[in-house]
Structure formats: C-alpha cells, structure tokens
Simulated scan of single mutants.
Amino acid sequence: MSNRLQSKVVVVTGGTSGMGAAFAKRAASEGATVLIGARDRARGEATAAEIAREGGKALFVPTDVTVEEEVAHLVDVAVTEFGGLHGAFNNAGGGDSQGALRDIDTSFWNRVIALNLTSVFHSLTYEIPAIVASGGGSVVNNASVVGVVGDPAAAAYAAAKHGVVGLTRSTALEAAKDGVRVNALVTGLVNTPLWQGFTKSNPAAASALLDRQPTGRAADESEIAAFATFLLSDESPFITGAALAIDGGLTAGY
C-alpha cells in the first residue's frame, strides 16, 4: 500500500459501514487522518478503533448529515483538531429511497431529498472553504447509476442523485480557481450489507439486477474505496467536474 494520502486530513460521511467504512480504512492505510461522520456511534467508534489497531489515524464524530449544524461541526473538528481539511468523501445516503412517483407523498420526497441531496449541499458548503484554506484538495460525492439514468421505481432517489451530479459539476466549476477538485462517483451494484440483505429478502429481484450487469457481479466495497482514494490523491490533478462510472459497464448499455 502506498502513502499517497500521507499528511492529508479527510472526512467521510456515512462512514460506519459499506462503501464509507471501506473508504475510511483504505484512506487511513494510505496515510490520511480520517474523520468518520455518521449517526451510529457504536459502529463509528468500532470502525475508528479498527483503523487504530491497524496503525491508522481515525476519529468518529457523531453526525446527522441532514442537520446543517452537525455537518459544520464535523468540518470544524477536522480543522481545529488536526489543522485543516484536504479532502472529503460525501457518501451518506440511501434510506427509504424507493417508490414510483404515484406511490410517494411530500413527506417521503422531502426525507429522500434531505438525506441524499441536501446533505451533500451541507457538506460542500463547509468542506470547500476549509479545503481552500488548507491549500486545496479534492472532494468526491457518491452518486449512483440513477444519477445519470432514470428508474421508474425510485423517482425521489433518482431525482436526488441527478441533483448530486449537477451539484458536483457546478461546484467543480466554481471551486477550480481555488484549487479544489470535485467529482461524483456513478456507482452501480456494490456488495454492501444493504445489497446482501436485499439478495436474501428478494432473491429473484437481485438475480434480475445481476442479469442486467455486464460483469455479472456486484462490485466489492474495496473497489469503490480504491477509486475514491485515487480521486482524493495528488495522482488525479486534472480530473474535476466529472461523473465517473464505476458500475461494471451497466450505464454503457443505456
């Protein structure tokens, strides 16, 4: 493992399981000090402790990304405790995200948009100035394949993730002059605990999704973490404003 994030301070939202936890571990193994922002204290502290046992540096900061003040606090801890902020993986999202337009109401819509889009707005609002003040860096927002294609069974979620892609591109244009890169990951099927639970509870539906996957499999969490780490490193200085598919070719067929 290289040290390409050596001396960098990064935050990850939704960092207690799945892609977020995998990224936190990978970034720490590459030399970063990682601040894990999430709601689940027990899992957050366990993830930070696991990183410490492996010789890395991590701190869990209780954070509900739908609450602006808590996101601001997460960034403030990075700056005050560790001297700055150089990168972020805005990964938090999901929840009750499925539902065709005819089946959802305003409260459902607001909840999905808050968790999956407004949370990224909060994060960027506080991360970008801190990264600029630290001399520049990189932000990666976790979107989804439904950030670039439609899904008739996930109207609110698709709208939110399309919003993440648009917000990413606009913020990248705004922040480029200040030395901050901003990109989005267009992730497909990933072997997270959520996917594993879905395959057990809905095996036929999971099989149908895999049949549409050119590679015939879901990505491992470590594959997403490795790519996000690359984008946060100094090895990707000319990549910004991009919605980068890491989906096993799924969107290539649309």
Rank of each mutant, 00 (worst) to 15 (best):
Y157K: 09
Y157N: 00
Y157T: 08
Y157A: 03
Y157M: 03
A158P: 01
A158M: 03
A159T: 11
A159F: 03
A159S: 12
A159E: 01
A160R: 03
A160Q: 00
A160C: 00
K161Q: 02
K161E: 00
K161F: 04
K161M: 08
H162Q: 02
H162E: 05
H162M: 04
H162S: 07
G163D: 00
G163Y: 12
G163R: 03
G163I: 12
V164R: 02
G166F: 14
L167R: 01
L167G: 05
L167Y: 02
T168H: 02
T168R: 03
T168M: 06
R169L: 10
R169S: 09
R169N: 08
S170G: 12
T171D: 00
T171S: 13
A172C: 06
A172G: 08
L173A: 10
L173C: 14
L173T: 08
E174L: 15
A175Q: 07
A175C: 01
A175S: 15
A175L: 14
A175Y: 09
A176D: 08
K177T: 15
K177F: 11
K177R: 12
D178C: 12
D178S: 15
D178A: 15
G179S: 10
G179W: 06
G179T: 07
G179M: 08
R181N: 02
R181K: 07
V182L: 11
V182E: 07
V182A: 03
V182S: 02
N183I: 10
N183M: 04
A184H: 07
L185H: 05
L185T: 08
V186Y: 04
T187E: 08
G188N: 05
G188S: 06
G188C: 12
G188A: 10
L189M: 12
L189W: 01
L189S: 06
V190H: 00
N191Y: 12
N191T: 04
T192M: 04
T192N: 05
P193F: 09
P193D: 01
P193Q: 04
P193R: 02
L194D: 10
W195V: 11
W195G: 04
Q196F: 04
Q196T: 09
G197L: 07
G197A: 13
G197S: 15
G197C: 09
F198V: 08
F198K: 01
F198N: 06
T199I: 08
T199L: 06
K200A: 11
S201Y: 14
S201V: 13
S201Q: 14
N202R: 13
P203G: 02
A204R: 10
A204L: 15
A204F: 07
A205V: 13
A205L: 11
A206V: 15
A206I: 13
S207A: 15
A208E: 14
A208N: 11
